Computed example of a mutant assay.
Amino acid sequence: MRSRCARCLRARCLCALLPGAPLAHQVELVILQHPLEQHEVKGTARLLALALARCELRVGETFNPSPNPEGRTEALLYPGAASTVPPGVAPERLRLYVLDGTWRKSRLLLHRNPWLAALPRVNLAAAAPSAYTVRKAQAAHQLSTLEACAAALQQLEGLDPAPLLQLQAGLVAELQRCVKSA
């Protein structure tokens, strides 16, 4: 078995692609990752968690809600009916849960965690089509976890998505280099 970087968990370390310091943002992100995605070469969740200051990555199939002593408004970033987050919630008062996995795995996570399905939803306003060319998407609205979170942070608090999208572009370039050299 190949050794992995202890920080990014990649066989080929990608830590140099990360910003010098985690990016500051207001919305708290909690990424719930399906276990089969944890060491997926094309996965973006781990890099995203390392790139953002207020981002927690949890791996599993069933989860308990995060403790919420500050009474944050909790929501789920997931397509569905119109967004249902109450208007006027300040970004610093929002905790956003994000499911990481294929669409099939994300539906499984939603099914196994009924408390998530009960949360208000955040839908992305007309996000740009995915630039994550190393994974096949069946529809234009299907984004990588990194792209979806970048779009959500831009929509909810005006965060510039460029540093996160540059991180993903670096990952795509590295994956393409590996394919060419194989």
Rank of each mutant, 00 (worst) to 15 (best):
R4N: 10
C8W: 03
C8N: 08
L9I: 04
R10N: 11
R12K: 11
C13E: 06
L14G: 08
L18G: 08
L23P: 00
V27F: 02
V27I: 09
I31N: 02
I31C: 11
P35L: 10
E37R: 04
G43N: 06
A45W: 00
R46Y: 06
R46N: 11
L50D: 04
L52C: 02
A53L: 12
C55S: 08
E56D: 12
E56F: 02
V59Y: 03
G60A: 07
T62E: 14
F63Y: 07
N64V: 14
N68D: 15
E70L: 15
G71N: 10
T73E: 11
T73R: 05
A81F: 05
S83R: 06
G88N: 10
V89H: 01
R93L: 11
R95V: 05
Y97H: 05
Y97S: 06
Y97N: 08
V98F: 01
D100A: 06
G101P: 04
T102C: 12
W103I: 13
K105F: 10
S106R: 12
L109I: 05
L109N: 05
L110W: 06
L110V: 10
R112F: 12
R112K: 14
N113L: 07
W115L: 10
P120H: 08
R121M: 13
V122Y: 02
N123C: 15
L124M: 09
L124E: 05
P129S: 11
Y132M: 03
Y132N: 02
Y132P: 01
R135H: 10
Q138Y: 11
Q142V: 13
Q142F: 06
L143Q: 05
L143V: 11
L143F: 08
S144D: 04
E147F: 00
E147P: 02
A150W: 00
A150P: 00
A152P: 01
D160A: 15
P161S: 05
L164I: 03
Q166Y: 01
L167Q: 00
A169L: 09
A173M: 10
A173Y: 07
E174N: 06
Q176D: 14
R177Y: 07
C178Y: 11
K180F: 09
K180D: 14
